[in-house]
Amino acid sequence: MRALGGVTLKIEPGATGLLGPNGSGKTTLLRILLGLLPADGSASVLGLDPARAPLAVRARIGYMPESECLIPGLAGVDVVAYLGRLSGMQKRPALKRAHEVMYYVGLDEQRYRDASEYSQGMQQRLKLATALVHDPDLIFLDEPTNGLDPDGRADMLEIVDELVREHGKNLILSSHLLQDVERVCTHVVMLDKGRVVRTGEIDQLTSDHTGTYEVRVDAAPDAFVEQLRAAGAEVAARAGLAALLVRLPDGEGTRVLFRVAREVGARVRHLKPTRRSLEDVFMAEMEKSNDG
């Protein structure tokens, strides 16, 4: 089975979201970058080739897997310390560090409990702690908010956001939840059916408007709307706002708006290019991908 094909991408430092529907190849891409799965092409992670030096790559990466997984029969802090030792830490420093990261992820009071008794939210935090124990240069988070209630999800995203913004951690967050990616990441890689369909800075992608403006005039808009439509524009009322969404005809600038307003005796009070949400961008790319 070919899970990924023709993937060429460069991931910038900072927080990058891997966005795609289930089965799009997000987890497969992470596993290739960890050196866990073979790939035909080549990859470089932190300057290292994961196919040739998988151990060196994994020593510098903290991985939070998607699936529910735990080391059975150990207390939470022992799981973290154990995985720290497997990353190459000495026994005592690993235990000390395990206490620190358990505290950081909010499991300090639960650290001596058997990890198999943890709730799903606590297990997600525990997995995050295991990813952080050796203070990696790069963190892979695979669906970190899976199965969390709204409060747990907000807490998890806050921790992750803090790691990026206040502690300068580099991370790749794989998720099918647009809001998670939008909340934490500055860059995004969109995947569908094993192919990269779009990459870029989220700010840039969402401001990449297609001639659509948010417009408000100081008079009753009916005549204004009618004239605009006559001029070839598409006009819609924006829900919850007293503004109109106007998509100008191809090749027309904003001058047409002022001309039409003058003609109907109104003045333009508000004019702003609309920003698309990440969801709009994502849905558009998915549509294109399906058409292709």
Partner: peptide
């Protein structure tokens, strides 16, 4: 006792390899 409220970096040296065998066996 842990009194660190924030994330702290760890500047130790990682030495992965055969010591992980001992860690697995012991655990």
């Amino acid at each position: 006792t842990v009194d660190q409220a924030a994330y702290r970096t760890w500047d130790g040296v990682l030495r992965p390899g055969w010591k992980s065998v001992a860690a697995i066996a012991e655990t």
